[in-house]
Computed example of a mutant assay.
Amino acid sequence: MSSPFLLPVLALAVCMVGAAEFMLAPMLAPLAAAFDTSPAHASGLVSAYALSYAAAAPLMGWLSDRAGRRKVLLAAMLLFAADSFALTLVPTLQAAMALRILGGLAAAATIPTVFALIAERIPPARQAGAMGGVMLGMTAGIAAGPAVSGLLAESWGWRAPFLWIAGCCLAAFGAGSWVIPRDLPPACMSMTKDPSINNAGDGILGLLLAKGAWNGSAVAGYVFAGEVLRIRYGLEVGAVGIAVSVFGLGLALGNMLAGQARRRYQREENILTFATVVVAGSMTLFLTAAIGLSVALGCLLTWGAALGIAAPASTALLAQRAGANKGKVLAVSESINNVAVLMLLPVAASASATYGVTPDAALLGGICMAGAIGSATVRRRQL
């Protein structure tokens, strides 16, 4: 039986991944000054982390399937802590970027291992709720990371946020050493999929590609939400920031409702189909329709909430169908998601600059709906 503290510790681990990925947003100027470069060059620290994360995820997922979840996750927390601490000591931007690559490796090991561990230790009926609760930790890290890092850097200098991350990772390592269970033998791991799902390996590629489509387009669309609010409603920068935070609130709300959605709709396939259609519809309405500000904020909240429900449902479904290869499949999913966002952002930006927001929104909404249809099609083949 798993410790009642397991999920909070896993939430702390993924919170650090989310915070580390976005914490540099308010710190580019002090980092540029520290390394005697420009903010544009300092942004290479973000790229080094993200590209390392995307490229290494499949390898790290395979490693967690072979070496064991506990070993890989604890090693990742130690590497994260050591990397963050070492960043405060290096003298050059090049050395800092090399260390951020190591941080990306640690992140790539953490995310699939955490969710594979949940899939192996939590009964199938509770997996979506458990994953939603842990994803809430990542949502908190993404939302709070820039704010906390900005305050720490302003008060104590650019090194303080990295020391904060290092301390939290050490805390996660210490707590994880006590609560993360010993690794299951391979024979037991292969038995943890939902017995109601036949031919578990079938349809995984389709689900991965469909998730890349709906998740990538939803994230790419969110990047343009602030500009839409500014142009359409004449909001100032501060007001735009507050308005856009409604999406994060919706995302957190969706994470918390994931378990309730599983109990209501019974199967992850049903949740996924419904939630992704809602994502596509609310995103397209927000980006294209001439609606009042209150309705637009409602669309933004719905968009985030539906995405917050769809993500844990999709992760639980992939884990159930992956058999003994949960780490590998979930890691490939992470890579596909990141690649989809990296591909769609420049395409969407170009379409918006050339043809305006409406055709751009139609493109992203169409891709999102195609992903939703793809998920439903895979579902029908499995029933």
Rank of each mutant, 00 (worst) to 15 (best):
Phe173Ile: 00
Leu170Arg: 03
Leu7Pro: 04
Ala372His: 07
Arg267Glu: 09
Ala76Ile: 02
Leu45Thr: 04
Ala305Gly: 03
Asp36Lys: 05
Ile142Glu: 12
Ala171Ile: 08
Gly176Thr: 05
Asn215Phe: 15
Ile291Tyr: 10
Val357Lys: 08
Pro185Leu: 07
Tyr265Arg: 06
Gln382Arg: 14
Ala67Phe: 13
Phe274Ala: 12
Val339Trp: 15
Val329Arg: 04
Ala306Ser: 14
Ala290Asn: 12
Phe80Ile: 04
Leu99Val: 09
Val278Ala: 15
Gly281Glu: 01
Ala261Cys: 13
Lys326Thr: 13
Trp164Phe: 15
Ala280Cys: 06
Gln320Arg: 13
Lys193Val: 11
Leu293Gly: 09
Ala109Gln: 07
Leu78Asn: 10
Ala25Asp: 01
Val237Ser: 14
Ala11Leu: 06
Arg380Glu: 14
Ser196Glu: 14
Ala351Glu: 12
Thr302Asp: 03
Gln266His: 09
Ala25Tyr: 05
Ile165Lys: 03
Gly203Lys: 13
Ser155Trp: 11
Ile373Asn: 14
Met23Tyr: 05
Ala57Gln: 07
Asp194Leu: 08
Leu342Gly: 14
Thr139Lys: 06
Ala11Arg: 05
Ala252Asn: 04
Phe173Val: 00
Ala98Glu: 04
Ala200Pro: 13
Lys71Glu: 06
Ala130Thr: 02
Ala13Arg: 02
Thr354Tyr: 01
Ser84Cys: 11
Val148Gln: 12
Gly374Ile: 13
Tyr355Trp: 14
Ala13Cys: 06
Ala96Ile: 01
Leu209Met: 11
Trp178Pro: 07
Leu136Asp: 01
Val277Ile: 15
Arg232Trp: 07
Met135Thr: 03
Leu364Asn: 10
Phe80Val: 01
Leu28Trp: 00
Phe115Asn: 06
Leu78Lys: 08
Thr88Lys: 13
Pro146Lys: 01
Arg159Val: 02
Leu257Glu: 03
Leu6Phe: 11
Gly201His: 12
Ile165Trp: 05
Phe35Ala: 00
Ala275Tyr: 08
